[in-house]
């Protein structure tokens, strides 16, 4: 029985590691830019795109579905980049919030027209980690590695704009252009992840490991390391919990992230001198 369990969970676990790798890094940017909701909004837009394709008869496995998800996400990225106000007059979070709500409701409307509606929506929320195949893990790993390389090459403008946008403007960087590149590559990651892991998991992988990194380390190198170790560690624990406690995998991972963050926060609080 354990061998069957192992055989079943091995690929989902590898997938979690791949997700940790890219998402923990991207999470730092998201938190630095203070647009935490952006990834859940883009993830939801990607899910909406996949749902639209679904309605037209294209299963999640097809390239058309991926193209639709990506197309919508790029559009969303464009909107988000264009609505970034220099003077911060309009809260970016407000725009993002509306985008999220509308794409979520839109997906419900679309899903209602399709026979698989409810199942599809649930899959988009908590993902379908258990049915992931080896070749999918490989494809996603390669894609994320390429995006990682892209971000490494563009690290100067990306980090500058994320951490000190006013200085970026002063230094003459074309902030809108770099923003678009950032959000577009971010969108590709989110589109790919959502189809497998669902909106909630993508959000968790993006935010929680990065938060842990910020709480436990000072410099970016240390923070990244902490984020990756944290992400991988929680994935292991969550997978084990799902197997041993007989819980649905996707939702367990999300809750594990939440719980571990809570514990971490409490421990740090307790350690701080009064």
């Amino acid at each position: 029985m354990t061998s069957d369990l192992l055989a079943l969970m091995w690929m989902p676990f590898l997938m979690c590691l791949v997700l940790t790798g890219i998402h923990a890094y991207l999470g730092f940017h998201v938190i630095a830019r203070e647009v935490v909701f952006v990834d859940i909004a883009l993830a939801q837009i990607a899910a909406f795109g996949a749902t639209a394709a679904f309605l037209l008869g294209w299963d999640l496995e097809t390239w058309q579905s991926y193209a639709a998800g990506l197309g919508f996400t790029i559009l969303g990225a464009l909107v988000l980049a264009l609505t970034r106000s220099r003077r911060g007059l309009v809260s970016h979070e407000a725009v993002i919030g509306v985008v999220y709500a509308v794409s979520a409701a839109g997906a419900v409307l679309l899903a209602d027209r399709s026979p698989h509606g409810a199942e599809h929506l649930r899959g988009m929320l908590v993902g379908s980690l258990l049915s992931v195949r080896g070749e999918e893990v490989l494809k996603v790993a390669v894609l994320y590695a390429l995006i990682g390389i892209f971000h490494w090459l563009c690290r100067r403008p990306f980090f500058l704009i994320s951490t000190d946008p006013s200085r970026a403007y002063r230094d003459g960087w074309r902030v809108r252009g770099w923003d678009f590149l950032f959000y577009a590559s971010f969108g590709v990651v989110v589109t790919s992840s959502v189809r497998i892991a669902g909106v909630l998991l993508v959000f968790s992988y993006l935010i929680v490991p990065a938060l842990a990194g910020i709480l436990l380390a000072q410099r970016i190198g240390g923070r990244l390391a902490v984020g990756w170790i944290f992400g991988a560690g929680v994935s292991v624990v969550a997978m084990l919990a799902s197997a041993v406690l007989d819980l649905p995998t996707g939702a367990t991972v999300v809750c594990a992230f939440g719980l571990t963050l809570l514990v971490l926060g409490a421990l740090l609080r307790a350690r701080r001198p009064a």
Partner: peptide, 14 residues
């Protein structure tokens, strides 16, 4: 209505 757990699936496979 509740997603299958890995424990249940591996018992089923067995």
């Amino acid at each position: 209505g509740i997603p299958a757990t890995p424990g249940h699936l591996s018992r089923l496979i067995q």
